[in-house]
Design a binder for these strands. Structure first.
Lengths: 153, 153
DNA sequence: TGAGTTGCCGAACGTTATTCGGCAACTGGG
DNA sequence: CCCAGTTGCCGAATAACGTTCGGCAACTCA
């Protein structure tokens, strides 16, 4: 991860669909060089993939929420099972496994409040390991897909 | 947003860096057709961008947390200002504006616990509109960049 | 019914991805 | 100090791709 790798990564975070030649030009190397760097970054697991950012409303996901979930007992089996279960649900965008009073925070989206409610009641209330949950509606979600580098690094 | 658009969007969510020809072949149209569809999807704001998914540890962001924040007064000015402020911090990955007892949930990352603590103390505690906050460490984060379509849509 | 419109196709052409041989700059042992 | 090995970058060559555009078929609506 030298300065060249960082510059390439930054460019791919900013726009993953620009041509390799454009990236090479912006970071100041030959296209063959940046291509090889990108190949190595993928191989090393630094680059995990490239994904389109889609407007949720276009996917019939007009309402979003964060659901804090507590499960019991707090065993590895229960935690892993619940994580896998939640991750497999189509309404689930993201699963956070947490320290603290909540064991999970689940970012979910649905067509409207009615569908969200149905999802929570039908899916979550069936799971016996859940001993409590709390749902908070998201009004806005600002996601930074190309965060500025941390200071002092 | 017909079935062809959806198929193209799905492919770009799965791998935003595959060639237009590959996408066209997978969704069963000519390359010129899928190219035009993609252009229109961008124009309509359905596709908002393409971003590389980078392993956090490679960016010196080994520790992540969710910070629930309460601000006062609950005026539009205060909320918008805080959202802009938080979104501008390099440690912040994502800002959720919430309904419920917490006004914001901020997804942050830092090099280690020490840097995280310094960030919270130095940045958040300076803001007079904050009347309370709670930090929860994230053990694991499972993000689905290409969620399955919602059932019944 | 027929003129207008829309959306897709396929060919053409300029651009890009990908490979690979070579070269220069480093590295470590003698 | 020297030199053999290694590493990383470059530039040329070719296959693949992006992009444009004329044409055609299917739909729309009067």
């Amino acid at each position: 991860m030298d300065e060249l790798d960082s510059a390439i990564v930054r460019e791919l975070q900013r726009d993953a669909r620009q041509s390799n030649r454009d990236i090479a030009r912006k970071v100041g190397v030959a296209p063959s060089t940046s291509l090889e760097r990108i190949r190595l970054l993928r191989e090393r697991g630094v680059i995990r993939g490239y994904h389109a950012d889609i407007a949720p409303s276009a996917l019939n996901r007009g309402v979003q929420a964060l659901v804090s979930v507590q499960v019991r007992p707090l065993s590895r089996t229960v935690i892993d099972n619940f994580k896998t279960f939640a991750g497999g649900l189509p309404e689930v965008l993201s699963v956070f496994v947490m320290a603290g009073s909540d064991d999970f925070v689940i970012h979910v989206s649905a067509q409207d409040n009615e569908h969200l409610h149905a999802f929570l009641v039908d899916q979550l209330s069936q799971r016996k390991e859940i001993v409590g949950w709390r749902t908070s509606i998201i009004f806005q979600h600002l996601a930074k897909h190309d965060p500025a580098p941390l200071p002092g690094t």
